[in-house]
């Protein structure tokens, strides 16, 4: 009985295994092999650490992604709880506007950042009108940060709103009755309850930022992020082995972060019941 059941299950999963093997595992294995068969051999994998240029790209990508994730969690966390709690005229419209960036590819987001803070951007015009000189930050890390924040917020805000909806208001009232001021209520009640949602959406936010290409490409910033370096090595320099090795490193870091966050979120979810 049991054997037959297993065979049946195997049969059902077979298509997924075939597709997964053909279009994911095989290219991934090939990528891993290619990465070690260039001029540098297996050393291509360590180049990301030993070569200052690559290491710089990796470091700035990670710093940017972490900063974007933290900033997004703070902004979207506060906004998400606020939107869940307060009902006002235009709330629905505001929520759908906040989720609008999901509809745009990274290229368009980059374009919008240029319109805002580029050489002929809105902010520059305003500051020069007030005689403060033309403020331009679209092509620096601040421009990247702005663009990344823009498309990260909707991913987090919806998750936070769903989690905030499940918060029992009696919990906060209980804490307050015991003498907790509003700040303590946030630290002791609201944040612990939102922790699984913050970890899960923060991990997605980090992974998206690590791999984002379109925005960085459009902004053509003076700071190179890793996806841009990979693109340059592959397309312009035909350094296929190195591009493959860098891709593997980028993938492993992002995947490990997601896996870790799943473990952490699972643990807190279990603790919170």
């Amino acid at each position: 009985m049991r054997g037959r059941e297993n065979r049946f299950l195997l049969l059902m999963v077979a298509p997924a295994i075939v597709v997964g093997a053909a279009f994911f595992l095989l290219p991934l294995a090939r990528l891993a092999v290619v990465g070690a068969t260039g001029k540098l051999g297996i050393a291509a994998y360590t180049a990301v650490v030993t070569n200052p240029q690559y290491f710089q790209a990796l470091a700035s990508t990670i710093v940017l992604s972490v900063t974007v994730t933290v900033a997004t969690l703070v902004i979207a966390g506060i906004a998400g709880v606020f939107l869940e709690r307060n009902h006002f005229l235009g709330r629905e419209a505001l929520i759908s506007m906040l989720t609008l960036p999901l509809a745009f590819p990274g290229v368009v987001v980059g374009f919008m950042v240029i319109m805002l803070a580029g050489r002929t951007g809105l902010i520059g015009e305003i500051t020069s009108t007030f005689g403060a000189g033309r403020l331009v930050f679209a092509y620096s890390i601040a421009g990247l940060f702005t663009g990344y924040i823009y498309f990260s917020i909707p991913r987090v805000i919806l998750t936070i709103m769903a989690a905030a909806e499940k918060l029992d208001p009696a919990l906060e009232e209980a804490a307050r009755s015991l003498g907790a001021n509003p700040w303590r209520v946030i630290v002791d009640v609201i944040l612990p309850a939102l922790k699984p949602a913050l970890i899960a959406s923060g991990a997605i936010c980090f992974a998206t930022s690590m791999g984002a290409f379109g925005t960085a490409f459009t902004l053509a910033t003076d700071i190179k992020v890793l996806p841009i370096v990979i693109y340059t090595e592959f397309t312009l320099l035909a350094n296929i082995a190195l591009a493959a090795a860098l891709s593997m490193v980028l993938g492993i870091i992002t995947w490990a972060t997601l896996a870790l966050s799943r473990v952490a979120a699972g643990a807190t979810a279990a603790a919170a019941g």
Partner: peptide
């Protein structure tokens, strides 16, 4: 006075115990 300064004890139908 807000509730946190009144020193009242509250018991709720949903218990409202801190799950963490």
């Amino acid at each position: 006075q807000p509730i946190e300064h009144r020193n009242v004890g509250m018991v709720f139908q949903s218990y409202a115990l801190f799950p963490n």
